[in-house]
Design a protein around this nucleic acid. Structure first.
Length: 390
RNA sequence: GGGCAGGUGCCGGAGUGGUUAAUCGGACUGGGCUGUAAACCCAGUGGACGUAGUCCUACAGAGGUUCGAAUCCUUUCCUGCCCA
């Protein structure tokens, strides 16, 4: 009994809710490995630190002897999830899904134990479904139940459209739990409703309902909204070490503590004793080495110091070869892919955002004579080496 | 099927015949401050043209009225509400 209490304490750490906890205790006390479900849509191949929070919890379950069922929603991805937007998302092709699934696997096994993880595609069962199956499934849930979901009821009240497809989504996701006979499903707090649908469906299908565990959402680099690719505030696990390092350094001190809490095992007490800048640096280094290695992590730190602390130029800058003898700075910026349009180039120059060899330039009429190399800088972190082609 | 209200830039949302590439907020970009912190302050945010104002594209789509349209008319599409 005491042992269960210890395990529970571990599981409770960093969770928001366990629904219901008594059932979890019951399941744990049976002493058998539990089937832990986690689902992801392979619409975009990048896993970011927000996912890592959940992956770490899954890893913890693995260490406690349980099995992870990592479900890839390839079937649902093919339909395209409108997720609150009226624009229909482009359907993802099969090839792309397979490719994304591969990338997913590579990324998640940086955290998860391969031997205790099953990768499952939900097309395995849904591809064989008939219309009859679907209609039968839809009878298991009511419109009122659906409207209980916060974002649905909000949109309903605001007279914005909700498609039936969006009602079907939670049902399909819930049915995955039935198919897998999941004991526990884990997700972010935003997934709570969908996870609970799984519970209801399992009960309807005569199974013991899964326990739902929700985890906090990690805010993105803006410090306000949840980390997501579409909001462009994410730190991807495949970001280049330098970018990953830089992005972490740019978060607020407050957010840093949350990152520490959710992404590492360090003690918060010790972190708080340090100077926030140093603490943030250790965090950045730790996370980079988690996804790359010590060496690249040190390199990222070094580059960071050079660029931002020492205001120097990083190593290994991409080279752009120029065959013209002289070139107008505005054209050069476009050619070097530092800006998208000439107007943008002129704008940046007038705002003092362009530097050549560390010198701010202000004259947008400047013609560069290409008799030597130049270091061209746009903003704080974009560098290109301009090389004459002779 | 009938009636009504709407559709504006990345998002929210003004404007309802004329200095309107379109007020404002958010977001984003650049600069300042700093620990590249965050917060804050300032500036900017359709494109083309070698620099000078001119042109092109844009207020759901198409057509029309007008010297002139995001703004008026016709029609198509889309969304919501009410009635059936």
């Amino acid at each position: 009994m005491k042992k269960t209490e210890e395990i529970l304490k571990k599981i409770r750490k960093n969770t928001v809710e366990i629904v219901p906890e008594e059932e979890l205790i019951k399941k744990l006390n049976r002493g058998k490995p539990l089937r832990i479900k986690f689902g992801a849509d392979p619409t975009a191949p990048d896993i970011h630190l927000g996912h890592v929070v959940i992956l770490r919890k899954l890893r913890q379950f693995q260490e406690l002897g349980h099995e992870i069922l990592f479900i890839i929603g390839d079937f649902t991805a093919q339909i395209g999830d409108p997720s609150g937007k009226s624009e229909t998302r482009k359907p993802v092709t099969k090839e792309k899904i397979i490719e994304n699934t591969k990338t997913y696997a590579e990324q998640i096994f940086k955290i998860l134990d391969k031997n205790r993880t099953k990768l499952i595609l939900n097309s395995q069962w849904f591809n064989n479904w008939s219309l009859e199956d679907m209609i039968k499934l839809s009878a298991h849930y009511t419109v009122a139940q659906m409207l209980a979901r916060a974002d649905f009821s909000k949109r309903y009240k605001q007279n914005t459209d909700i498609t039936i497809l969006e009602f079907i989504y939670p049902l399909l996701q819930g049915f995955d739990s039935v198919e897998l006979k999941a004991d526990i499903e884990i997700g972010g707090t935003d997934q709570k409703f969908n996870l609970l649908v799984g519970r209801e469906l399992q009960r309807d299908f005569g199974q013991e309902p899964q326990v739902v565990i929700t985890l906090p959402l990690l805010e993105g680099t803006d410090g306000v909204k949840k980390m997501s690719k579409s909001l462009n505030n994410y730190i991807g696990v495949t970001d280049f070490p330098q970018d990953m390092f830089g992005k972490i350094m740019s978060i607020s001190d407050e957010l840093m503590l949350k990152y520490y809490q959710l992404l590492t095992d360090f003690s918060l007490e010790e972190v708080k004793e340090q100077h926030p800048r140093n603490a943030k640096r250790s965090l950045a280094k730790h996370i980079v080495s988690l996804f790359y290695d010590e060496k690249l992590s040190r390199q990222a730190e070094k580059d960071f110091e050079k660029i931002f602390v020492g205001k120097e130029i990083p190593e290994n800058i991409e080279e752009i070869k120029i065959k013209e003898k002289t070139i107008w700075i505005v054209n050069l910026l476009v050619k070097a892919d530092l800006v998208k349009t000439k107007n943008e180039a002129k704008r940046l120059i007038s705002q003092g955002g362009i530097k050549i060899n560390q010198e701010k330039i202000t004259d947008e009429n400047l013609d560069l004579i290409m008799d030597k190399e130049y270091i061209l800088q746009a903003g704080k972190r974009n560098f290109k080496k301009i090389v004459p082609l002779s």
